[in-house]
Simulated scan of single mutants.
Amino acid sequence: MLEFDVAQSRLATAGSPPSIAEACPLAEARGRILAQTIFATSDLPPADNSAMDGYAIRYADYAAGKRLPVQQRCFAGEAPQPLQAGKAIRLFTGSLIPEGADTVVMQEDGNENDDGFEIQRPPVQGAHVRRRGEDVLKGNQLLAKGCLIGPGEIALLASQGYAEISVYSRLKIGILTTGDELLNPGQPRSDEQIYNSNGPMLTAMAEAMGATVVHCLHAVDTSESLREAFAILLADCDLVVTVGGVSVGEKDLVKPTIEELGGTLDLWRVCMKPGKPVALAQIRGKPVVCLPGNPVSAFVVFGLLVTPLLRTMQGRTQVIPDVQYGCLAIDRRLKENRDEFLRVRADYSSRGVTLSPYPQQGSGIISSLPWAGALARIPANMEVHDGDTVAFYDLRHWLR
């Protein structure tokens, strides 16, 4: 069997980074990938300003019991006068520091009346002043090409005045589910049929990563139905993901259909549980990844093996997220001949991370998917006990 890490690496390089970029308004940039390195256009903050509501003074003017006449009241967005010796200027959070001032005294540390402002707690020189450029210096790199844009990145770009940025075109994905037994949710069902959960699930997983699912099609177990579906998907999509139908049964027709279309399918038996059967093909220069039909297996394989390929084709810098480690909390010994990926919850504390498995780990237990927040990796042929440290994949990072 193909080692899990080898399969992951091969899939990560099965597609090409994008070459087409487009202008994107900043308000629509969440989930997009930067196609350019961004540099700061100005210092941040652009000038010294007050971090508190208070009074700007010269530190040298402070003396216990001394009142400083209030020269001016200056709100954020207004230009202060130069501070005169022996006086104070009333400031508010974000107000510019007046020329000549070097310290801000919080309003709670004194009192003001008609005679001026008396400081009742000795100030610290330079206190509560945000210095020009202390956050960002003009000309410094803000964000690197290949960065995933989230709310924090949008805040940083907006602070520099960027209203529009260059991003890569969205990756277009086609999903193909197969099987005579599957029905779309909402249709009347008989006992020999099941609802198609793979299509909606994989669509949601792909869209959560910022890709566009152009088509989510279903084919029955005939060569004609599969050929029609592949014709649509290959014409409109950059990447095709199929589910089921790649084994060697009489109605497993995905492999011969791919070969009829000029593709060569490389069928892998990956050393992982769940999710052993995985296949990769190239048709007309486009990658086609074939997942096992079991929904839990499809979820795990897509999450750990296919998402690196998506990131590569999106143009991201980090293709494989970091793997973390935690302490497994189990009531039995574990030992498998394949790497087993347990659906777990990761509980973070000052003592570390505790990984608690879902009680039922069968590959047909779909109820474990919304419950679990991570996948814990149990190495093949290694006996694992309660309290042992194992690697885990936090789905908050792997599915974004």
Rank of each mutant, 00 (worst) to 15 (best):
V213N: 07
L183P: 02
R32K: 12
I97M: 10
A23W: 14
E383P: 09
R311M: 04
L171N: 05
C147K: 13
Q160R: 00
Q361P: 06
Q314V: 06
Q84I: 06
V246N: 11
Q81A: 10
A23D: 14
R338M: 04
V319T: 04
F341M: 06
T354E: 08
A279W: 07
D236Q: 09
I33D: 02
V129H: 05
C271P: 04
V70D: 07
Y393N: 01
R10N: 12
P188L: 15
A29V: 01
L375P: 04
R284H: 06
P256L: 00
D53T: 01
G133R: 02
W398K: 10
G86V: 03
I320Y: 04
G275C: 00
D252Y: 05
V296T: 07
I175H: 00
R121G: 11
V344S: 01
A12D: 02
P98I: 00
F75Y: 12
S169I: 09
L253A: 09
M209R: 00
A204E: 10
A29F: 14
P82D: 06
I38W: 02
L304Q: 05
A21Q: 05
L68I: 07
P69T: 06
F299D: 07
V323G: 01
S297H: 07
L26S: 14
G15T: 02
N337S: 14
V344F: 09
G110P: 04
E99G: 05
F39S: 06
D114W: 12
I320P: 05
K255W: 11
M209I: 02
D5P: 00
G352M: 09
G263Y: 12
I175D: 03
A88H: 00
D43Y: 11
V384W: 14
L83V: 00
K273I: 10
L239Y: 02
F117Y: 15
T93Q: 10
Y62F: 13
R58E: 08
M272P: 02
C24H: 01
P46A: 14
G65M: 10
I57M: 13
A47Y: 15
L375Q: 07
I175G: 09
Q187E: 13
L34M: 14
N196L: 06
D221I: 13
T37N: 08
L182R: 11
T307D: 09
P17G: 00
M106K: 12
D347F: 14
A64I: 10
S368T: 10
S363Q: 11
G315M: 12
T178A: 08
A60Q: 06
A60Y: 04
T212A: 11
P287N: 00
